[in-house]
Design a protein around this nucleic acid. Structure first.
Lengths: 210, 210
DNA sequence: TAGATTGTTAATCGATTAACAATC
DNA sequence: TAGATTGTTAATCGATTAACAATC
């Protein structure tokens, strides 16, 4: 199917559809309608249909979409079929938790190596080697990696970010609670706990007032 | 200042302003303009001004906003001044990383206790007690807690969610990569790694094609 | 006064929703 | 055929941006 320009809002909903479709793995019907998906996820059915139209080459009226084909289409669209290599910087608590999280493979993400200021030869977390920071540049000379995960304390994040960009990184997944200054062609995706917390506590405040 | 209705988009940007304002802590000028903030964070200045208008009782033309007052206003607005109690369910790798993350206090979040299927008496992570799951209900009888953090494997998430709601939980911070079915008055905030990854890998795919 | 900055009112843009025609 | 479902075209909604008047 033809690849159209996709908006960020649609893109963010796709993993949700995918996850749900996969939970249905041994159900009777090999077909699923946009209506059924929408009901299951608490969304509008028109929105689901429009979103699916971006990735699929169409469902059949009265029947719906072929579930397995839809899974394939979304995975291919999201690039889960070909893996992306990444490095992780900062093997503290959060960094180690991410290294130990086995689920990333399913998303096509492969963490090649981790780096930390403290060299921890013994801490070879889940098979991923943890190198000292001063080997960062030489690692990038030997390996072509475009994505980095930053899990260092906020004060070091910008410094680490600059070094990574000098190494040729194009996309940064930033877990440090700070704003990173980067050139226009570099993407920073902030995994911002503070943002989520803001939404949650605002809801609680509204609840309490009632 | 009068509290207006605030949109989610504005709400999500406020923690960013706050974090930046705090990094300026011992700079010369006690004033900061929306223009300066916008430039520092790579945003439009009109948007910053509109956002600040929601929380602040106004800056002064030609001078800007009083930095410390602005920090106070945002913190108060986000409820960082009065702490919210929460429980965490699932003391696996990610759960323990969150328990060990000291930064939550600054956001007014206090994790009272954690629960896990495996009772781990010895694992009293960073002072937060970890109780076995079967004590969940009795804990809620003794403590009024409105917020829960779910860090269990996806397959158990809905089950845990239902139990929490029965206990009176009003807001759920969901780290499990699955959709949770909840009544209308309960807020689920998904911390969805898959969503962020989708945005990142889409950017990389576009980069590579060039 | 002139200029920087604020805050507001209007215009634009994008995304969601509604209405409807097409199809099996 | 009738009804469920798809996909498209138009309307609505909300958020962002632009233009401008007010202020120190």
């Amino acid at each position: 199917m033809e690849r159209k320009e996709i908006s960020k809002s649609v893109l963010k909903r796709l993993p949700g559809y995918l996850a749900y479709l996969k939970t249905l793995n041994d159900t009777a019907s090999p077909y699923i309608s946009a209506t059924a998906l929408a009901n299951a996820l608490g969304m509008g059915e028109v929105q689901v249909r429009k979103d699916l139209a971006m990735v699929s080459d169409g469902g059949r009226p009265k029947i719906g979409y072929k579930r397995l084909a839809l899974i394939d289409d979304i995975e291919q669209f999201l690039g889960y079929d070909n893996t992306t290599d990444a490095v992780l910087i900062g093997a503290g608590k959060l960094g180690q938790a991410l290294l130990g999280y086995s689920g990333f493979e399913a998303y096509g993400l492969n963490i090649l190596a981790a780096f930390d200021v403290k060299p921890m030869a013994e801490k070879c977390e889940e098979g991923t080697p943890i190198y000292p920071m001063d080997q960062l540049e030489s690692f990038f000379k030997a390996n072509k990696v475009l994505m980095a995960i930053i899990t260092v304390p906020a004060v070091y994040a910008q410094e680490v970010c600059d070094r990574l960009i000098a190494c040729g990184i194009k996309a940064i997944w930033n877990f440090a609670p700070t704003h990173l200054e980067v050139p226009a062609n570099i993407l920073v995706q902030n995994e911002n706990m503070a943002t989520s917390l803001a939404v949650l506590s605002m809801h609680l405040q509204a609840q309490i007032k009632k």
